[in-house]
């Protein structure tokens, strides 16, 4: 397989995953915001949290003065100036798919193309209901695409590159959500129920709320939520689960063997897994976990670049 094709598949997959998780984060926040006074400091802080997860607060501030539901939703969803806006992510994904369509299932390409063309026709003005509908459609698009991949692709190189992209993106996103949420709980230590609210949001942003309730009491204690999102082995968005799947996909790509050219990649992956083992069985507070998450996000960056050099991606 051409390296350029592999890179295209990897990034297509990441962009679709990113569009889906940004859609979910924004959607949860839009619903939660209905119950909080719009211009309170708390509200601004919460919108900033969402911006930090889906884009960047500094970048946002360059274009907008205040943090209202409308402007944040617009920036995250449709704004061309935001490189991680949902429409941009889908545009890149479609472009990646177009450049690799000779190896993709035809249905996947057609679906992505159809959605892209529908977005192009969107005239720019939208109501809140329309945004909600759009975000729901983005999530469903991602589910359908994953379904097509799982049900029709040969388990060969192209499939594994797609999976590596998805799991890596997901692990990084979970780390980012945790990082932002830990910070926010520290900033709002004195406020009543703030902790509860932030840990609940983290679960909602990561599609883990219902799953969490099946295992833990609904009290949103960090001692339960934090390990659940970090390393709960049954939860498919916990960082450890995602990283294990990255490793598994790389191993399949390498037919179960570590060769001299893939040594560095396996080494980088093993190091991350070791770090998890170290913190896993210890009780951690939000404050203590911060440096670990920073470290982890750096490791993800390193894995990304080792991965690229192993397979000559550029």
């Amino acid at each position: 397989m051409l390296s350029r094709t592999a890179a295209g598949l990897f990034w297509m997959s990441r962009n679709i995953e990113r569009a889906e998780s940004n859609a979910r984060t924004l959607e949860s926040r839009l619903i939660n915001a209905l119950e909080s006074p719009e211009y309170s400091t708390g509200a601004v802080r919460d919108w900033e949290a969402v911006l930090e997860i889906c884009a960047g607060v500094t970048e946002y501030r360059a274009f907008y003065e205040d943090c209202t539901a409308e402007s944040v939703a617009s920036y995250i969803t449709f704004d061309d100036r935001n490189i991680n806006s949902i429409t941009n992510c889908l545009g890149y994904a479609r472009q990646n798919a177009r450049a690799t369509r000779d190896v993709l299932p035809e249905e996947l390409w057609q679906l992505l193309n159809e959605r892209y063309l529908a977005i192009q026709e969107f005239n720019g003005t939208w109501t809140v209901q329309e945004v909600h509908r759009f975000l729901r459609e983005v999530k469903q698009l991602s589910y359908t695409i994953q379904g097509i991949i799982e049900s029709s692709m040969l388990r060969e190189e192209s499939y594994h590159f797609i999976k590596i992209g998805k799991w890596l993106e997901r692990a990084e996103k979970t780390a980012r959500v945790l990082n932002v949420v830990c910070e926010k709980t520290m900033e709002s230590e004195d406020e009543l129920h703030a902790d509860y609210y932030y840990w609940l949001s983290a679960l909602q942003f990561l599609n883990g709320y219902d799953a969490y309730l099946k295992r833990f009491p609904p009290t949103m204690e960090p001692q339960y939520v934090l390990p659940f999102l970090l390393s709960y082995e049954q939860f498919p968005r916990s960082i450890e689960y995602c990283m294990e799947h990255v490793r598994e996909a790389v191993l399949k790509l390498e037919h179960g063997q570590v060769s001299h050219y893939s040594e560095d990649l396996f080494f980088a992956l093993d190091r991350v897994m070791d770090d998890f083992v170290k913190i896993k069985f210890r009780k951690r507070t939000a404050r203590e976990i911060g440096p670990f998450l920073d470290d982890f996000q750096n490791s993800c960056g390193r894995i990304g670049s080792v991965f690229a050099s192993t397979y000559y991606l550029y």
């Binding site: 051409l2 390296s3 350029r4």
Partner: peptide, 15 residues
């Protein structure tokens, strides 16, 4: 960009 010529032979860059 996927091709290169080395010793007058054409190669493609694969993973």
């Amino acid at each position: 960009q996927d091709l290169l010529v080395k010793d007058d032979v054409v190669f493609m860059k694969t993973v």
